[in-house]
Amino acid sequence: MDFLQPSSWDEALASRAERPDALPIAGGTDVMVELNFDRRRPGALLDLSRVDELRAWSVEDGAVRLGAGVPYARVITELADRLPGLAMAARTVGSPQIRVRGTVGGNLGSASPAGDAHPPLLAAGAEVEVASAARGTRRIPVAEFFTGVKRNALEPDELIAAVHVRTARGPQQFCKVGTRNAMVISVSAFALALHPDRQAVGTGIGSAAPTPRRAPEAEEFLAGELDWAGRAALPESLARAFGERVAAAASPIDDVRGTAAYRRHSLAVLARRAATWAWDDLRRAA
């Protein structure tokens, strides 16, 4: 196995183009597990950890451009105000050591249905910026990025450069169920973002379908029912109806971590609670 270690973004894209068999590696928290278990044996590893461009974030046009190599630990300490949903999700990732190594870009590359970063990116309507040496840069809405179980929309010569997430205009929540109180892969996860500026609701579901996904019907339903102008309290019945619609959007399976029925049930509870918390936050902020 070859080990490629570009020191600049251009070099990284060139390497990627030359070696479509290379597996990009950032923090290594997924890739190394796959290698150690002999589940993958790529022709080469493309180590992106020396590419400084990937390890920075900036604000452009009211959105955070989050470099693919920014680790979770920095999302928590540096971006909790701008991207509260993603920061909440980052806090639930693995152990402190994993949060120092693991990156949002790596999470997108793995495209696991259980990736913790995905639901808040879906709820926020994020876009993934990908690039290739031949065709330059393009942006993919995150909801279109996940194409199957652990598959994404990257072309063989492309790398993930960054993810663009609009700075939160309203409350966001992220909830994750696991069968212990730390260091656990989610049994189900749910992210919610309220966008009061455009009277819209964003959602993201994790670990309850072949890919992370939104619950569009639930989003429209809640956005249509909420009292955006008057900010009246969220009726319990509405929160519950929203929860049921979120659960209906999932296509979970039974596996060793949980049953399909429990995943649906828990999503309904999480969505109900998250909507209530977020709406209460919005009312308090008013």
Binding site: T92, Q173, C175, K176, G178, N181, A182, V269, R273
Partner: peptide, 13 residues
Amino acid sequence: LPGAVGNTTHGEG
């Protein structure tokens, strides 16, 4: 709380 930083409850249930 049950769920800890999973943020699954603020006391509900």
